[in-house]
Design a protein around this nucleic acid. Structure first.
Lengths: 337, 337
DNA sequence: CTATTCAGTTGAAGCGCTTCGACAGGGGTA
DNA sequence: TACCCCTGTCGAAGCGCTTCAACTGAATAG
């Protein structure tokens, strides 16, 4: 392996000069810089990551903690992870992939060993066990998702409360008076995942304000579960004409079942989904939807965490406003019989 | 930050003794070990990753190169990544997440800087630009997927050729004489992704051997594309009674379209999928399928790469044998009219 | 013409760990 | 009893980089 010392010798300068050329922390004459850069290229030099980390006590690595579970939002998680990785690279950082498996201990380990300079946590629960550790660690950190108590922490997320409200508004404006919500699997609510509860709150609050009926049901992602949930909803509220779906896996089953029941979309019932645009476009009916801006969230998380690493300390809540795109699955409510 | 020297002082031993307690590379008396471990716990010591990497020239990090594209197999990729991360942890390693974006340069960078001790590459193409670099780098590496020329490299993958053959066999045994294959999106074949081509080869070879008709069509994952592809298939081969699907996104659209055409599954047509078991079980018809053992692949990749890092040099091709699970979507071919 | 400044460069001191060679002392062997 | 070996421990030499203080010479100010 080529070392900095060899580059220095090759270029006829001292090691520190090479280091300053690399870091740009001191002014270097154009001639010297050129010579050093030439040597670096010729020798194929790459600075040794460990030595660099030891000397500077910065690793240029961001840790990304992903959920271990895969019971929801797999494409969203993936898109966020890829966005985090590419954005991190554009800041000359790499990404360390941690899973939820290790739990809070992972935070301690990564912080204690100086493996990563900063952390991004996904799948944050309302009362997340990792948060106390994170606060006391004093490392730059950003959460994707919003816990119950976000003081001292920076969070990025879609504004799910507003998202819920927006979905209800859209259907209400179209004249729908009875709306059913197909939510995430029950387990998601049981572990108090922030986004799921916030969406539900937003839905309920707006529905109450607008005086429309709202039935919220959790639902597993398989066809059979969707069939059961749907028939129970229609038993309880036969006049339901609007559906809001926040469960990617349930979308196709729902559309398929509605078709079988002879309910045309959007003539008889309207469907609004909360999902990535790609999913909405690829569904068997092009879905009116509120997009989950996964890439944007990943990108923002990295930008924010880099800002914090640079010392700009702003503990803020970065809630992305929801955008609803009208496609082919929503229309005016049918005239009441 | 607590350092090893502080632990040594606290325990009343030398720094090297602490180091040997940690690494187990020299014998240490039970009493001393106990005392040192006690000090480590009391002080909350974590070895500094950079210093360790510098001194030992091993980073205890495995780099995982993921595809940047998300036009296929997102859940599979995710599952592999999570399996890699958790298995790596059980070997006391961490995972660095790289995207395809940087391309071959990423290999050079990671190897050159000593950031990672080993690499795992996903989404390997038949003639992958990263492979020459990998070979000359001389780092332990494992590919998930099989390139055209695998000499000097270790690969893990499902045996897709056998998978194709197995699907055809199953349908042929049930009496189907005309089989259509719904493949991945055209782009996947255009960039010569190994698994897609191998599957096609396996399908064709076995079909020829068994004397059954086989029509292979690439297909995008959306409903409209699937509708077009299906109608073209049925135009060309109206007698088609067996479908093999290797495109997760196309599964539900296909089932939904068959339903609309009044073709009952499995009475009129049989469907065999190549997909993770979870997808097969959650579909609107429980699908007969060949599983893509994503977790197993991720796990194996890590085990193999760790073996290589330990010096056991075996350049092998670890092809997992396909397993076909019969579920509710395949049955005897209907009697010819 | 000397004093001051400043851009450009350097030497040296670590950063916290691993690992090698050395050594003390307690067994076993001859 | 003298020798060797083995176990357990230690001191010291780096690993390759960053960064600080210090120095040089040229440019500027007084």
């Amino acid at each position: 392996m080529v070392t900095l010392a060899e580059v220095a010798r090759h270029a006829g300068v001292s090691a520190s000069t090479v280091s300053y050329v690399l870091s740009g922390k001191r002014s270097i004459s154009a001639a010297t810089r050129e010579r050093v850069e030439q040597s670096i290229r010729e020798l194929g030099y790459h600075p040794n990551a460990g030595a660099r980390a030891l000397a500077s006590s910065r690793s240029n690595i961001i840790a990304l903690m992903m959920p271990l579970r895969t019971d929801m939002y797999v494409p969203v998680m993936m898109e966020i992870a890829l966005a985090v990785a590419t954005t991190a690279r554009s800041h000359d950082h790499d990404v360390l992939l941690l899973t939820g498996e290790e739990g809070p201990a992972a935070v301690r380990r990564v912080v204690g060993s100086g493996l990563a300079d900063a952390m991004i946590l996904m799948d944050v629960e309302l009362d997340d066990a990792r948060l106390p550790l994170l606060r006391e660690a004093g490392r730059p950190a950003v959460l994707i998702g919003v816990p119950a108590d976000a003081t001292g922490l920076t969070c990025v997320d879609l504004d799910f409360t507003a998202t819920g409200a927006l979905c209800v508004e859209h259907l209400a404006e179209l004249g729908h008076r009875d709306i059913a919500v197909i939510g995430e699997a029950a387990a998601v609510y049981e572990r108090h995942t922030g986004f799921a509860e916030r969406t539900r709150d937003g839905l309920r609050a707006r529905a109450a304000e607008l005086g429309v009926g709202l039935l919220h049901r959790s639902c597993e992602g398989d066809y059979a579960a969707m069939a059961g949930t749907l028939s129970r909803i229609l038993d309880e509220r036969p006049g339901t004409t609007g559906f809001i779906v926040q469960n990617e896996a349930a979308i196709e089953p729902l559309l398929s079942l509605l078709r079988q029941l002879g309910k045309a979309v959007p003539e008889d019932v309207s469907v609004v989904a909360i999902c990535p645009d790609q999913v909405a476009v690829q569904a068997s009916v092009r879905l009116t939807s509120v997009a989950i801006p996964a890439s944007e969230m990943g990108r923002r998380a990295v930008e924010l965490v880099m800002d914090k690493a640079r010392g700009e300390k702003k503990d803020l809540l970065d809630l992305l406003p929801p955008r609803l795109t009208v496609r082919a699955s929503s229309g005016p409510a049918p005239a009441p019989r």
